[in-house]
Design a protein around this nucleic acid. Structure first.
Lengths: 284, 284
DNA sequence: ATTATTTTTGTAATTTAATTACATTTATTG
DNA sequence: CAATAAATGTAATTAAATTACAAAAATAAT
């Protein structure tokens, strides 16, 4: 709870003089942060120590600290809150909510990311003989995207959103191969079975999925993207974005691990794409 | 521009002693807001007036005002800064940078989003006889994802990452159809040509792409996702995320526009997927 | 109702912090 | 290598915040 909210909720329990101070501040919080304790005391018609005590009552160390906290609580935005879309939202409303929820999801994912697993995953990828990305439904496009990124390197990479193909590929994998399973829920039966098969071949199995979940159990390494989401009515949105950003992180780690000479190759690929574009070359 | 950003961008133009002050603050901005001018001067090994002058250089009224502004710019946890990944970054470092850059990109996109175009686009989609999503390379997976989302409704939807297929589909489109072109650069020649063809058929052409750009010129409606990015060495990451979130916004608008009875259908689809999963049903 | 006790508030003194004026040093240029 | 301008520091001044204590108000108990 920030200071301003606290102030609102505690005015009732303040003493008479302290409430006078609170009133002056609440009337113009933005102005208050530039007032000295003397000015504020005068405006509230109380003594300076009263203002000081008031600050301490609100949990601040003193008047300057109080102003600091007040200033911080006045910063507008209150972003990163996962608010649900309502039927009568205006376009601005739900657009803002979606962007904010997505950012909130990214924030949560970043905070809970397991660096150790990430390190293992990057290590495994950079030493892989072959890399595969498997996903179904909405997660298929995430897997597709991952393949697209890794296609720029010289390690063989495949992607599939077909259960039979995935099963066959899993059976034919072996030590040194990395198979990445992508799933929002981690509960898709077909994918769990395939992950189990893949593990028996001693291939490295990485899950980008919910934890805990049946799929996570089958994986050697798990990067968790569990994000609280309103999945009842709408479809997974924010969690899929989190998955994609995780893949961005993986590929960045992979690129860095492979060293600078590798980056020259990337530049070559970019140049080879130039002819298909109008002027000013850029990424795809 | 908040104080912290300003500080970052102006360190270069500061004098030697002032830069020492800046360094101390940048090393621990959160700590700085609780230091007195004397402590800070001591840490930076400069005199107190130097700190004071430093504050004025940054546009503050004095030291207390500077602290106030600094406190405010620290509220969001210092995200939203587009910092580049460096060769010797640790995993924590570049992970943080990627997440932050992505969030920064989303923030920029949200701010610059054209609500009017968005409204037109949602209107067009909800009345479409057929919806197509076209993209190439990395943007193909974005288009793929969009198709996946719209497949849950009763409007015919297609996706293609094949230039010939796209061309044929464009020729066979007509009034009432909506074709969405997705491209990071907006400079892919093949896609521009197809967009031009599509327009001649009187189909509604929506671009999710950079503006201004050759592709944007061919589109009736453009949702811009131009994001400053380090595209020289690595591949487009943040801008693709912005495109995906825009699609989330479009589909949310579409769903809301179609009304509550429509949402029951969504629930039916979800239930039909239940059998393919272990326990606790959820989105895909 | 009145006194004792606690709580609240204010006055004045003290301490701490920030700023100003001016001197000195350091860099810059002809 | 002067001469000038810019940058930095010292010391004095002013402003701000806090503390200690006393007075007043409110509450409780007899």
């Amino acid at each position: 709870m920030n200071l301003l909210e606290k102030l609102h909720s505690e005015v009732a329990s303040l003493s008479k003089s302290e409430r006078k101070v609170a009133d002056v501040i609440l009337a113009d919080p933005h102005g208050a942060i530039h007032k000295s304790i003397a000015t504020l005391a005068q405006l509230a018609d109380v003594s300076e120590p009263t203002v000081n005590r008031f600050c301490r009552t609100l949990g601040a160390k003193g008047y300057p600290d109080f102003k600091l906290q007040l200033a911080q609580s006045l910063v507008k935005g209150t972003p990163f809150v996962n608010r649900h879309v309502e039927q009568d939202d205006s376009i601005e409303d739900f657009t803002g909510k979606i962007f904010e929820s997505t950012m909130a999801a990214l924030n949560v994912t970043r905070k809970h990311i397991d660096i150790e697993t990430l390190e293992q995953a990057i290590e495994a990828l950079s030493q892989a003989k072959k890399i595969s990305f498997f996903g179904l439904g909405a997660s298929a496009s995430v897997a597709h995207d991952a393949q697209n990124k890794f296609l720029r390197f010289d390690t063989p990479v495949m992607f599939s959103d077909d259960v039979l193909m995935q099963r066959m590929a899993a059976i034919n994998s072996g030590p040194g191969d990395v198979i990445v399973f992508i799933s929002h829920t981690g509960r898709t039966k077909a994918l769990c079975e395939i992950a189990a098969i893949a593990r028996q071949t001693k291939a490295k199995v990485l899950g980008i999925t919910a934890f805990p979940s049946p799929l996570a159990d089958e994986c050697e390494m798990v990067l968790s993207t569990q994000v609280p989401e309103d999945t009842d009515v709408y479809m997974p949105m924010a969690s899929r974005i989190a998955q994609l950003v995780l893949i961005d992180v993986l590929i960045t780690g992979y690129t860095l691990r492979r060293g600078p000479d590798f980056r020259d190759k990337l530049r070559l690929i970019k140049e080879s794409l130039r002819d298909s574009r109008f002027g000013k070359v850029d990424g795809v």
